[in-house]
């Protein structure tokens, strides 16, 4: 068990990760998941984190590993449209019928409004955090298609960017949220 507190949006959030599986990873199982609208089967220890199933077993490497403890958001994917940190989600926690979406499933041609806005605002620097940023932003727009500036900042404070692209991220989310008004 790892327990810690992170300070997001001036709120202290307690995170407890059950990582006891790290010591016992022997129950191999054939896991069925639906990812980017495709049914996939993978043979992995049941407690493998979704992140590694996605990256190493399915080869969808747009989803990144950075902290592994849920603190940075680089590994963000959607489970039924909800932004979720795949590095702390055991694959066994994904239930039948749930749909997983990764950055690769957002669009096939950079045509998602967030991707267009990200290019318009020239957001990425090194780019490593950006799949997670975009997926986290998409999670916000799924819940709230017209977020205020404050709501954007609050929501996006969950994700880290060492290159410091935050100003442009906030701008790009605003652009995307108003893109249908143009």
């Amino acid at each position: 068990m790892v327990a810690y507190t992170i300070d997001i949006t001036c709120q202290k959030i307690d995170i407890t990760i059950n990582n006891s599986h790290l010591l016992e990873a022997e129950n191999m199982a054939l896991v069925k998941i639906n990812i980017n609208d495709k049914d996939e089967q993978i043979d992995v220890p049941e407690e493998t984190h979704l992140l590694w199933a996605i990256r190493e077993h399915l080869g969808l490497t747009g989803t990144k590993f950075s902290c592994g403890i849920g603190a940075c958001g680089a590994c963000t994917v959607h489970i039924d449209g909800v932004a979720t940190r795949s590095c702390i989600t055991p694959i066994s926690a994904v239930t039948d019928g749930q749909k997983i979406t990764t950055i690769e499933g957002l669009s096939s041609d950079n045509s998602h409004p967030l991707q267009e806005a990200w290019i318009e605002a020239q957001v990425p620097q090194c780019g490593y955090c950006q799949s997670g940023q975009i997926m986290h932003a998409a999670g916000l727009l799924n819940e709230n298609s017209k977020p205020s500036k404050q709501e954007i900042v609050k929501h996006m404070s969950a994700n880290l960017c060492r290159c410091g692209t935050y100003m442009r991220i906030a701008k790009a989310v605003e652009i995307a949220a108003t893109s249908d008004e143009k």
Partner: peptide
Amino acid sequence: PRVDIPQKVNGTAQFAIDVR
């Protein structure tokens, strides 16, 4: 526009950690 950005918004930019 920077040439690397389109690949950095769709997960295709390849970092060493992505090599398989």
